[in-house]
Design a protein around this nucleic acid. Structure first.
Length: 420
RNA sequence: GGAGGGGUGGCAGAGCGGUUGAAUGCGCUUGUCUUGAAAACAAGUAUGCCCGUGAGGGCAUCGCAGGUUCGAAUCCUGUCCCCUCCGCCA
């Protein structure tokens, strides 16, 4: 959520920033509502101040209220209720107006309405050739992937990993968690996968994107589409003590997505699925550090790509392609020589203070200072199914076997998936 | 699922319906003292909002939402969460 206070102070700055994203925010309506809001607060506060004064005098003097006082205070009370009721509807509309507005992009985010305008900022060394043997052909033949089994038990866009395929995924997750916790100082978190509506609201997934989320009607809980949702809620409503930031978390969880909006895209193989495993980095930082943190997280993710021997590139997403809650996003794509395309294995964003404002996460810069909103950043390192695909397609040998990256061997116990 | 108990400030823990935003203790900050530290003493120490250039003033908040009342942390109703015991299940 954007800052109402800042919008009121500088409406045109916000309008201009949101227009860059192709949005036409109802700024004028917001200003009207805020004006009304302040009026109502003043009215109600004045009446309440008067009522407090009279009641306190009665108490101090240890006497019964006079009939006139009672009549007058009843009237005041009724008036307060009326004003409060109107205030409630104004606040409700204000909230409903503000919640669907996305974050404002940072200045250096390239303009553009779709992925055509994304900018490749870096491409690693390495080949981008193709051998034409896509994972959907290779992996089932190797006996490590069974899409027919997943289709029969769960439908399309699921997958069953078997044998060394399952072990490979487990090894990848474990390896990435170890790198991030041991080398980069992230604290490992294992959060719930089902969360309350308020938690989804806090991360920005609700109310706008409910169509992509799985929901249990009976308990009103939502399945997380990424660990970001849970990690973002870790300090909701809290004031973080001085000298605690930056907080760096990492979690390995499944991610559940309906993918309705992508119907028809990526139907072959396991590139786009309803459930996938992902190792997610998340940070709470002071605003001054957020841009440097974002770059550091990109470093962390790309260093893993390098150690997995991937050819990769880093994209800076344009204003029209960054996520709802994001102010700036880098995507990392790795080359898959089988399906001959770049696979998005990571998306790393700063959400500035957008999420902390939504969930009331604050911090105190130093003892006695007033509270501020931390910036939150999130990024995958890395997302499964696609990373798994890349290992298989990159490691495929002439003879049909698959050699896996050296760094994974301690986690798998073997270095080769034998040819069928 | 059944039976009880409880949710108050950073923590612990009081609080006859009326100077209670809230005793007291601990913690924390600052000052005095000290070569330094500790101890002792003194003062300060919640969050949000509204008005005001400022000084400052006002309002709200004792899990949450309603209600009773001139007045509610205190009474009533609902709800959420936590703890203990029993049952059931992993």
């Amino acid at each position: 959520m954007l800052s109402l206070e800042q919008i009121v102070r500088d409406p045109e700055i916000f309008r201009a920033a949101l227009v860059r994203r192709g949005e036409d925010p109802p700024i004028d309506r917001i200003l009207e509502l805020d004006f009304r809001r302040k009026q109502l607060i003043q009215d109600a506060d004045a009446d309440r101040a008067n009522r407090n004064k009279v009641s306190k005098a009665i108490g101090d003097e240890k006497r019964k209220p006079t009939p006139e006082e009672i009549a007058e205070m009843r009237e005041t009370g009724d008036r307060i209720k009326t004003v409060e009721a109107e205030l409630a509807t104004v606040l409700e509309e204000l909230n409903a107006t503000l919640l669907p507005i996305p974050n404002t992009p940072l200045d250096d985010v390239p303009d553009g309405l779709d992925e055509e305008s994304n900018v490749v900022v870096r491409t690693s060394d390495g080949l981008t050739e193709t051998h034409g043997n896509a994972h959907w052909d290779v992996a089932p033949a190797l006996g490590i992937l069974d899409i027919e089994a997943s289709a029969s038990m769960s439908g399309s866009r699921f997958y069953v990993l078997k044998s060394k395929g399952a072990r490979l995924q487990r090894a990848l997750s474990a390896y990435m968690l170890d790198v991030l916790t041991e080398e980069h100082g992230y604290t490992e978190i294992d959060p719930p996968l089902l969360v309350k509506p308020e938690t989804m609201l806090g991360s920005g997934n609700l109310p706008k994107f409910k169509d992509n989320l799985y929901h249990d009607d009976e308990t009103d809980l939502w399945l997380i589409p990424t660990a970001e949702v849970a990690l973002n809620a870790l300090h909701q409503g809290q004031i973080i003590d001085p000298d605690v930031l930056p907080l760096k978390y990492v979690a390995r969880t499944p991610s559940f997505r309906k993918e309705h909006t992508a119907a028809g895209r990526d139907v072959r193989g396991i590139k786009r699925v309803h459930q996938f495993e992902k190792v997610e980095m998340f940070r709470y930082v002071e605003p001054e550090e957020s841009e440097a943190s974002l770059e550091e997280m990109v470093e962390h993710a790309t260093s893993i790509c390098e150690r997995l021997d991937f050819t990769y590139r880093v994209l800076k997403l344009c204003t029209g392609d960054i996520g709802f809650q994001s102010a700036k996003t880098y995507d990392i794509e790795v080359w898959s020589p089988g399906s001959a395309e770049w696979l998005e294995v990571s998306s790393i964003s700063t959400c500035t203070d957008f999420q902390s404002r939504r969930n009331g996460t604050r911090y105190r810069p130093e003892v006695g200072a007033s509270t501020r909103l931390p910036h939150t950043l999130n990024g995958s390192a890395l997302g499964m199914s696609r990373t798994w695909i890349a290992v298989i397609e990159n490691g495929l040998q002439e003879d049909g076997s698959v050699i896996i990256p050296e760094v994974l061997v301690p986690y798998t116990g073997w270095d080769c998936i034998e040819a069928p």
